[in-house]
Design a protein around this nucleic acid. Sequence first.
RNA 1: GCCGAGGUAGCUCAGUUGGUAGAGCAGCUGAUUCGUAAUCAGCAGGUCGUCAGUUCGACUCUGAUCCUCGGCUCCA
Length: 643
Amino acid sequence: MKITFPDKSVKEFDRGTTALQVAESISSRLRKEALVAEANGRMIDLSRPLNEDTELNIYTYKDAKGQEAFWHSSAHLMASAIMKLFPEAKLAIGPAIPDDFSAKFYYDIDLDHKLSESDLEAIEAEMQKIVKEDQVYQRKEMPRAEAIAYIKERDSNDRYKLEMAGEFEDETLTFYSHGDFIDMCRGPHIPSTGKIKAFKLLTVAGAYWRGDEKNKMLQRIYGVSFPSKKLLDEHLGRIEEAKKRDHRVVGKALDLFSIAENIGPGLVLWHPKGAIIRNLIETTWKDMHIRDGYDLVYTPHMARLKLWEISGHADFYTENMFKPNEVEGDLYQIKPMNCPFHIEIYRGDIRSFRDLPIKYAELGSDYRYERSGVLHGLMRVRGFTMDDAHIFCTPEQIHEQILEVCDLSIEMLKLYGFNDFHIYLSTRPEKYVGEPEQWDMAEDALRKALEERKFEYDVDEGGGAFYGPKIDIKIKDSIGRLWQCSTIQFDFNLPDRFDISYVDSDNKAKRPYMVHRAILGSLERFFGVLIEHYGGDFPIWLAPVQVRVLPVVDEVNEYADELVEFFKSAGVRVESDLRNEKIGYKIREAETGKIPYMLIVGKKELQEGIVSVRKHKQGDTGSFDPKEVLAEVLRKIKTKTVD
RNA sequence: GCCGAGGUAGCUCAGUUGGUAGAGCAGCUGAUUCGUAAUCAGCAGGUCGUCAGUUCGACUCUGAUCCUCGGCUCCA
């Protein structure tokens, strides 16, 4: 039979040769590292004999598909250790989760005993033994009826596996075993447990069976595994690094924001230093919107409940809204969104096709009820400010408008040092409002914009909201995590509900297209992402304090004051540290305070009228004329240099 | 909301089997005037998240409640 490799080369093998043997024929190293294979587009175990002409791809840990199998096999390894220690446990599901930042696999188990840290250690020790024994992962196929009987025979109460076995489309189910452990599983798996050289169980957490809160809550153990100790240590190091960058930790250390118990969960206080950054983000945002022809508007934080009944939010969004307030017999609702307000402004006049596009932009503060368990620092809050805008336009204008929004998003995100974007196009779901032709046109417009800009994007078929298709842009931060920020969404619902229109050139009233869009998402979340992206080391244009003057002895305090005045009068955020402390101490404080420029002045600098410049994280850079330093600082601020 | 873990000084944390609390940093006072990441000494600082209960006595045990953290679900 012929085996075709990814590089299109073809080799002849005997029937019944396994993928592993093929790997060995290529190189002994590949044999050692091979984990799984893909035969004619289907993932298989290396031990599977090949019986016909096959396009074969062999994966090692270097490949995403190899990793996935590796982590899934690790989940089985963990499950087998759990079953050894707690034979009464029932297994639910245990997949690999390659996209998760810290964990790489988990297993959901139903067990009355509450697992603790020490249990995790015991499980790890048991896993270690199984790894040492280098048990082989073996595949077994059974027709459905036989499989169900087999599961029942092993444990008549194994409701999770039985439920799944009854639902799979395939009539043939597969099981994988290693040692005396066996689990229903599609596979594929790596050859043996011995390949899993390094692993760590991270946490145990609750998770509902099938993610549905009506179901029983199971215990989920998260873990990571690697083919070497070195890779595990690197991974754990990255987790540590992420912890150091945690916006809640940095936000506290740098006094940027807080969430006070007396004020309420999910409600953010922006402290002076955080407010400086927010203000810069806001003015930059406003300037760019005015440039792009948006009209800035302001709208109130609440409205009659009636407004939300018209918009439909009172019906389909109640879950996320705070309860309305009664005022003089009328109910008022604090807003979870800004759209109906912008629509009301649009409705306030008869609009001609000549007026379009109309683009209302607002940094609109919204309040949404989020369940207490989901709140997370600045990333998920109950009160937030969306950098919102609504575009009302004619069908002919859509293309240009979408392009403009895409360009604005990318341009603005790049200002903050984000250069890696992951873009998703979500299309019509099963349940939707509006006409299919409208949807097609809108999806086309979104697709065309992405293609015209040569953006790579993934399509989430059926992933759109019921009211329209959308583009989401996620940004990758400096340590590789993805964050959802920009969203561009068509809306075929609200224009109908509010019956908005424009008069076209044929003097007929027509329905405008409406697009919601946010670029930063919410200022709170964006700030959180920004803090983690920079780890608190903000570029100079954003730094709350840009320059600090540090006198070595108090004889030069007056010179320090002069320098502060000199920089301040040029608009630089500058301060001095005149305390009676050693220079080493002042420097340490300025470094931990992440201040970009430290101007150190002593007797020498006073005499010569110069400053010694120390840059954050770079150290001493030498002595300069203050005018030169100011010019450099101003240039960096003006160009929003990110370094 | 649910499962699990927490809440002790401004911050980070320690507190053994119930006998009314400790450290480091920060703060204040004083000494020190110093050259690129922590000078020394002294002082002050706490209803041990909140409310009940058990007990002669509760930071410690029990219950309720608020908040935080890790997840589930959802999303800006």
